[in-house]
Amino acid sequence: MSNIVSGLIVVAFAALVGFLGLLVKVRFFPVKEEEEKEDVAGYVTMVVGVIYALILALALVAVWENKDSAEGHVAAESSSLHEVSQLGTTMLPTDRQRIQDAANAYAHQVVDTEWPEMRKGEEVGEAGWGLLTDLRTAVLSSDVATTARQDVLSDATNQLSILADARRGRLDDAGKRMPPVLWIGLVLGGVLTIGLTFAYGIEQRFTHIGMVMGMVALIGFMLILIYNLENPFNHGLGADPEPFTRLFGG
């Protein structure tokens, strides 16, 4: 089942919970007229709502920035790898083949092995670094008897440095997660915000129910969005290996 369908199911379930909770409150704990005019409850609800909105916004911005950082590192890594492969075409046939084979092996390691591990939140192994070392060795051991090939070697070495830095950045991004205490604040803050809406009584009960259901559904949607973006390589909303597959095949 896709993340989108699962998210919609959770949002609908959250709205239903809010609906049932409000029905229980209205049925068994009716609000008296004097309680409807209580200004303090309205002030507290407003303050709690604003604070919770700020927490949601900060969490969403944080996970979105991690996603953008991951996409930037993936683009830089794939671009540098492709540039090294292209520069290898100017070398002697034997050297060219070794460089391109090493570049393709690295790309397929990233797509076929590392990406599934990052999506599952697992630690990426050292095989990728070994393949990067093989690529560097293939480049540095090339025959550069001519000035032109020496210039190509210099450019390829610079690209290898960029590639290594981008790889480190990608692996760092894969380990970024929100602190558990922030998740506690998001969940408890949502429960408190929704709970405070039960302190009011509106003559049009269906209007009240609709307002509560809408708020619960919106908060549920935001929490699902943050959860899916927490892993910047999550399937669907996160960074994908398309730059590698586009440049080096599936």
Rank of each mutant, 00 (worst) to 15 (best):
V50S: 06
E34Q: 07
L135I: 00
A174W: 03
L188G: 00
A107C: 08
V191A: 06
F244L: 14
L81G: 05
S6C: 06
L56S: 04
E65R: 14
V10W: 11
Y227G: 04
F233H: 05
Q86P: 11
I226T: 03
A70F: 05
A14Q: 11
E36D: 02
G125Q: 07
D101M: 11
R177W: 03
S141W: 13
A14R: 00
R167V: 09
Q97L: 12
L218Y: 06
M91S: 05
S80R: 15
L87V: 11
G128H: 04
T137K: 14
A138I: 13
V48E: 06
Q204F: 02
V48Y: 00
E126K: 07
V216L: 00
K67H: 14
E230W: 03
V10M: 11
V74C: 11
L192E: 03
E35R: 14
V47T: 07
A107P: 09
V17N: 00
M46A: 11
G210T: 07
L135H: 02
M91R: 11
D39K: 15
L92K: 14
S85P: 12
F244R: 08
H73E: 13
M222H: 06
P179Y: 02
R168Q: 13
M91E: 10
I209H: 08
L132D: 03
N3K: 13
V144G: 04
L92R: 15
R177D: 06
P232R: 05
K120V: 02
V144T: 11
